[in-house]
Design a protein around this nucleic acid. Structure first.
Lengths: 270, 270
DNA sequence: TGATATTGTTCAATATATAGAATGTTATTC
DNA sequence: GAATAACATTCTATATATTGAACAATATCA
């Protein structure tokens, strides 16, 4: 009857909710463990994992063992530490294999990144929570870039956020609530931001001029998978001079028309 | 009390075993669902998934709902079809981010692939079951290649298999049992293959001269993460002439010395 | 278009996954 | 190097995830 003295961490609290609501709580626990291991810089022992997620150690052990058996987590018998295993790559491959957006977007991204010497991303819009980078193209050597695929960002941040606010059908209340939680280098006021969202709606693409990361300009153009349902965005990222002056309008046009072409192709196919 | 008339499929039978043995069967079910969706060419409905995996539909529904909540599976409310969601990419990114093997191996693979005009892979050896491709470098345009990362192959197939047989500490009985299940274009006899394994042990690297895929020569050199424990392999794949004649010895040397350098660096660091 | 088969979803009983204490096991401290 | 602390792991009672049948919603066919 005594109140618990534990103070669950942020992932712990979210997990506790998911566990209560689900008819398969072990799966929520497993996903939380996988994400924690994915974030961690080094392999973790049972106790730290259980503590961070607010799990009972014995339950956490069973979860880990199941994940090890499925080859999604590796276990070092000497140090008793757990880490992500290469099996997660196989799942990602399954997703990449037949994702029409990445197939269609990659050549487009490559073309823009080379022509304007900027980094270009294809982002998948999951909802109001966050976006996931699903395709990348850089002008220079593109070796370490593939590691950026899979990165998650808050949905409403930067230029992509203005696109989602402008073209996704979310209520103003939802949007304002989320807006408060964002972290910017140079935060705009909500009023300023709303004006920019309105401008985005009018122009068809969004600009973040150093708000998210100061000195970095970000452009984003919306892509629709089915008519009326915002699903992806093309994003161009340039440092300082690369996206200033005479080059900018050309880049804006290229990004916007690429996004429109993609939308047409995605809508037509399905 | 009546016997079941269902005849579970292969994934279904394996899953049934995992479910019985585990203290968190929902996780085994979830992993099986993810793998099935990863393999499938198109989104699947509840019933086909449940049938293929030998799951009760209601249970399968709860599993899918939990996976949707975790953003590992997407659900199309109109068609009621499930597919992998981009969230699996985020897990893969977590793995890639701090995997010393891929970091160290990538430049080495690039150098060899360019110099000899062959495809070069870094493979992670999971056990006697299979290997997973974790790094790729190709000589030509390397856009669609990144999709190959995550591919799984039977452990004992091709040149990598001879390496595992030669340098992993597995019993002959285990090896012979698995050998029988392999599928080659031009199957070697077990005696021939054993002779090649012995040669591999002597030379330090393995060759598959068209057995696995006829006309394709595969070289593999072992990489040790900790002294005495085989963990990875470097694999060079060449079509016909590219790996015949005078060029072959130089490629063998390059692959072998690259593997040894990698082994030293991986052992030393940890 | 109406009838029928198939699929997706809810519901209540029960087999069982989970929580928490007890037990080994390893790391840390003095 | 002994004592102590933290850790991983087993064990058992109980809350609950799973099952299989009943129901609702689609899709299919005549």
């Amino acid at each position: 009857m005594a109140g618990k003295s534990k103070q669950p961490s942020t992932p712990g609290r979210q997990l506790a909710k998911a566990v209560r609501d689900s008819k398969a709580p072990a799966i929520s626990r497993a996903a939380a463990v996988l994400r924690l291991l994915g974030k961690s810089e080094k392999p973790l022992g049972l106790q730290p994992i259980a503590r961070e997620l607010g799990l009972v150690p014995s339950t956490c052990l069973y979860v880990l063992r199941a994940l090890v058996a499925e080859e999604l987590v590796s276990f070092d018998a000497d140090t008793k530490r757990y880490a992500l295993e290469a099996g997660v790559l196989t799942l990602a491959r399954g997703w990449l294999r037949r994702n029409e957006f990445t197939d269609l977007a990659q050549p487009v991204l490559d073309s823009i990144s080379q022509r304007f010497d900027v980094t270009v991303l294809g982002a998948h819009i999951v909802g109001l929570d966050h976006i996931i980078v699903v395709a990348v193209s850089q002008s220079g050597a593109n070796l370490q870039l593939s590691a950026q695929i899979g990165s998650r960002f808050p949905a409403l941040i930067s230029a992509t956020g203005r696109c989602i606010a402008a073209f996704g059908d979310h209520t103003d209340a939802d949007i304002e609530a989320r807006f408060g939680t964002l972290r910017w280098d140079e935060p705009p006021t909500f009023a300023d931001w709303q004006a920019q969202v309105a401008e985005t709606r009018q122009r068809g693409f969004a600009v973040d001029a150093g708000n998210y990361i100061s000195g970095v300009t970000v452009l984003a153009a919306p892509v629709w998978k089915t008519r009326g349902k915002l699903s992806h965005a093309l994003v161009a990222i340039g440092i300082g001079s690369a996206v200033k002056g005479s080059g900018l309008p050309a880049l804006q046009d290229a990004l916007l028309s690429a996004a429109q072409t993609l939308s047409n192709r995605l809508c037509g196919e399905v």
